[in-house]
Structures are given as C-alpha cells and as structure tokens.
Design a binder for these strands. Structure first.
Lengths: 324, 324
DNA sequence: GGCGCGAGTGTTAGCGCTAACATCGCCATT
DNA sequence: AATGGCGATGTTAGCGCTAACACTCGCGCC
C-alpha cells in the first residue's frame, strides 16, 4: 500500500480511503490512486484489514459431510446471500461425532467468524453445539424441534401431514412408513407426522422401517413392507426410489398395487418411474433466511423467532387409489 | 495472548511457542501455559498469525454453482484432504460468466490463498482463469482437454469408449448420443468418444441431441430419438433417467426395445428402473489428487503431469441385446 | 575454576492495514 | 483583513501475532 501511495504521490492513508470508498476525496486524487493500483497490480491484504478492524465479515457454516441435494442447495443459497451482503461463508463439513464437531467449530472460531450457521439435522451435532455455549449470533438449520422456536427449518410435521392427508384422501388406510435414522430431527418429525395423522384418523400405524436415507435402504425396506399395506410414506425421495425398485422386484406395481410418497422433491423425482409424488421443500429459502437472521443479529437487532416454512405437496404418478 | 502470558507467569512469546508446538519448553511451563489458556478460554487470532507469518494455509476453490453429485463429492474429498494436511479450503461457487469468475477469483486472491483449485467443467470458466495469468500453484479439475497434460480429471474419452464398446459388444449398431452442453469439456469429450468409437467400428453416428444435463432434457430428448436407434448413450445419469421416462411414455421398453447407458454412476443409479448401466467416476479421488499436487507445488516441488484417472463401466439392467 | 555451549526463556521489531487525531489550505463570513 | 469552518490530506499508534535475536542459567570440560 505504501508503494501504491508513492506512485500516486499520496499517503498510504489516502490509498486506504480510496479503497474503502470514502467520500471527500478529490476525484483527481482518486483516479491517480486507482491508476497506481492497477499499474502495480496491488491487492490489499485481507489479514491486515481484519487485524486492524477486528471485523472478519466471515460467517461460519457447519455442514454435514454429505453431498445431498438439500444441504448443498441451502449452503449455496446462503453463500450467494452472504456475499451480496458483504460477508463470506467459511464452510466446514463435519461428521456427526462430537469430537469432529468440536474441531470444526474450533476452526471456525479461530478464524474469527462473526456468526455461525449450523446445519444440524442430526441430534448429536446440535447437542455438541449446545454444549459449547457460544456467544456469537448463531442459527441452526434443519433441526426442527417440536415446540422450539429457535432455528430455521421447513415444517416437517406439516410436510408429513400433507403427504399422509393425500394418501388418506385417496382412500388408503393401511399405510406404512419408511423412516430415516431417528437421530435426525427430520426423520423423527416426519415419523411423528405420520403417526399423528393416522391417530387423528383413528388408524393404527403399521410397523416402522428405519432406513439410512439411501436408496439402498429403500430397496431393502421393500422386503419389510407388509402384504396388506396399500401405501408407503417414505422419509425421503432416495428411499422412495429404492423402495419402488424393491417393490417392483417383488412383482408389485406402483401405484396400482401400492402407492409411494417421497419427501424432498429432488430434481430427478419428476422423472422417476413412476414420477414421484413427494413433498417439496424450499432449501434455498432457508439458506437465505439464515443470512437474513444473522445479519440482523450482527447489526444488534433483536432475534425474533422465524416461523417454519411451509412445504408443498407435489402430486405425481406414484400415488393412486388403493387396490380394491 | 499477553493475558495468558501473565496468568501463566511467562512471556507472550512462550505462549506462542507452546501454541506452535515448539520443543525446548519445560513440560512444567507448557502445562502452566495450557492451563492459563483453558482457564481464560483463549483462542489465538488467525488474522494476526497470517499477518505475522504471511502464510494463510488457505487453498482457494472455485466451484460451479450447482449441487450436482460430482463437484460436490470432489469438493468434500478435497476439503478433507486439505484439512489433514493443515490447510483449509476457501470455496466460492460461481456462475460461468467471465465477470463472476473474475470476481470470485478476486475474492480468493484477496484472501491470500496459497493455491487454487478451479473446478472448470465449462470452457468459459477455464478461459477466464487463463486470462488472469495467475502466478500461484493452480490445478484445474474436470476440464479434460484433449492432449493437454495440465489439470486433473477422469478420462472422459475412455469412459465414453467403455460405454460404447459395451453397446457394440451387445450387438448394437444404431446408437444415438444425448450430449450435455458442448461448452462443457466433459460433454465434448464424451461426444468425441462416442463418435470415435463408432468411426472405428465403421458405423455412422445418428443425429446428436444436445441437452442441459437435467433429467428434463433427457425426457425431451426421448422425442428426438430416432425410430431405428436400438441404444442411446447419455452424457450423464440424470439425462438417462429422463430419457428412460420419456421413452417409457412413448411406449418403448428399456432395455427390450432400446438400451440406455448413463455416465457418472450417481448413488441412485443403482435403483433407477431399470437399474442404470453407467460409467462410474471416482470424484473423490480427483479432489484428493488436487490437494496432493498443490501441496507438492507449494512445497516447491516440480509439477509432474497427472495422468487421467480411469473410469469404470458398471453394467446393470438398462442395457441388453438389440431387438431382433 | 573459568569457559563454552545449549536449553529455556525474554525482548524487540515488524507484518499491512485502519482509526483517530493533526494539519493545511481555501472559502465564506463578519 | 481577520476568523471560523470544512474539505482534503498527512501522521501516528496499534490491532495480535511471530521471527530474530538477546539473555541467563546450569552443566561438562580441560
């Protein structure tokens, strides 16, 4: 910066002012500085700025170590929103174990992030974060907790109820559920929605199958589907896909013999065979909301609880009336 | 740090030494320092370290703004590998236009990244990067260029040839290709492989359909499949999925009436209906290789060209002998 | 017993930037 | 013509750390 100042014949402080868009700089001076900068190919040192201002403008993001559509989309939307607001995300992906979460969080804290987004679909991750009692603005994503106003997420209960209501409306009464691992908030909430909706309709649930979110688990679940079930509500689209495959291998037709509903509405769901009826979640929106909330908190605003976002049911061809 | 030093009754430099794992520190002193650190909940300021050492230990990653399985997996593997080596990735996602690439790159450079990973499947991204003539260690991913030794990628030509050889071996002669956008290196290379293999077998190619990688494009492509084609080689799995859907809607059975091959081997491909024959790419490997190469360069080593990684054909149920 | 040596620690000087204050003209005002 | 004010710029100090060098012991050696 000193070099630039000399070339432009000004003080380094003036260079700093130009770079920071201060007013009260003679246009002519500004031009000379700008010219010197581009002539020298100067880039200002971010570390020194951070040190001098004690502002990093960094938002830490703790993301699960998966390449699933949901978290990935949310992180990308978040990045875009943060950048527009003059912040940049520092993303670390982490397994769910406590030590890994601590280490990732430690890294982010060392880097001086001003706020934290924790994508914590898994209970262990949330517990680990809670244990740390961090004192910076923090928002948790996808960790729906029944009755807790904290965090930002899509209303999983509502989504499950949407799916179940659709099946009930079609006339299904014997509906089975293929859940994700129940340590995942979303899996637990969807299961709860499944049971609550059935209970309300006065119907007993069929045995639960707990998978691991993968299509392979869905495939294996097919063997566990009870012979008199006429519909299956799956915890996500991947498992629904695998389930349909497994059911097909068993000689069952979807939806003629058995209906299947998924959850997430991944981009491919539209072209599964049959095209999948599923619950659509606006992942990008939660990423944007996270940034909004955090910036509000950084600016010192009060933290108002964010209402859960409503999912939308997308009816396609994998559901139909039950066989007679 | 000064506070810690006082509590421990040493100089701040000794604290620094403990933190940096220096030898020649009396165990007793070290313990006192460590105790003071945890008592005060002290975290060292990364920006100050960077400023003092002029080492950021950051690796910039320029990734495409998509949530596809390939780039996502590569980035995750890269992150893991970098972190193990004591580096951390700074990921920016960017659209393919020149201005956006410049701005993302500018950000990374400002942050003082010591090396750059550019995931540049798109020709415009690579061009923009080249234009900048950066002088730091840099590696490009997924930008296969015929005959160029630079960059790390999976051998797309080989993959396409694998797929085509499989179809030819089954007895197919009228094979069509559904390509991705041809500004993508991978799309171009796969197309080239398609044509080269046919040429070698003395067979004329059928009209090309160029899609946009999405399953929707695959679905639309179905309408453009020539009536006498007995097999289709798709540029990726998503398009293959859509294509199968479209063909099914046209009353064609896969593979009885027409065989379909995909590319990528996404985790769900195994459970598509029918399970998809496809070319498997080890995305994680290229992420790891990128880190390996860059660390070598940072350490001052010579840059040896990295041979392309061989993909593997996975034969499933979407391909079979042509109808008589 | 003085000397050299090295282990263990302290002191000092920046890294490159910004904040705060200081300065210098020049204009409008009285 | 002296004065206040403000726009435009310069000067100084310090953000929190590490590198380089300085120092102080205690030990083994001749």
């Amino acid at each position: 910066m000193q070099d630039v100042a000399e070339v432009a014949g000004v003080s380094h402080q003036t260079v700093s002012r130009v770079l920071n868009g201060f007013e009260n700089i003679r246009p002519e001076t500004r031009d000379r500085v700008l010219a010197a900068i581009s002539q020298l190919g100067y880039r200002r040192n971010a570390a020194a700025r951070v040190l001098a201002t004690s502002r990093t403008h960094a938002i830490g993001v703790l993301a699960p170590a998966v390449s699933d559509y949901g978290p990935t989309s949310a992180v990308q939307a978040l990045e875009r929103a943060a950048r527009i607001a003059g912040y940049h995300p520092l993303v670390t992906t982490t397994p769910t174990d406590r030590a890994a979460v601590f280490s990732s969080l430690g890294f982010l804290l060392d880097q001086g992030v001003e706020a934290l987004v924790v994508i914590a679909p898994h209970i262990r991750v949330l517990d680990a974060v809670r244990e740390l009692e961090l004192s910076l603005p923090i928002v948790t994503l996808q960790s729906t907790e029944l009755g807790s106003g904290t965090g930002i997420s899509i209303d999983q209960l509502e989504g499950a109820q949407l799916a179940m209501a659709h099946l009930l409306e079609l006339g299904h009464r014997r509906i089975q559920h293929v859940a994700g691992p129940l340590e995942f908030f979303e899996a637990a909430a969807r299961r709860h929605g499944y049971e609550a909706t059935l209970a309300e309709a006065g119907i007993a649930p069929l045995p639960l199958y707990v998978g691991d979110w993968t299509s392979g688990a869905g495939y294996r679940a097919a063997a566990a589907i009870s012979p008199d079930a006429t519909a299956v509500f799956c915890g996500n689209d991947q498992m629904a896909l695998g389930l349909i495959h497994g059911l097909t291998d068993r000689g069952l037709r979807v939806p003629e013999d058995i209906s299947v509903v998924g959850f997430d509405n991944v981009p491919e769901a539209e072209h599964y065979l049959p095209p999948l009826t599923t619950v659509s979640q606006d992942f990008a929106r939660i990423g944007e909301l996270a940034v909004e909330v955090l910036l509000g908190q950084i600016a010192g605003g009060e933290r108002a609880p964010v209402p859960a976002i409503d999912p939308v049911l997308v009816v396609r061809a994998s559901t139909g009336p039950p066989r007679a």
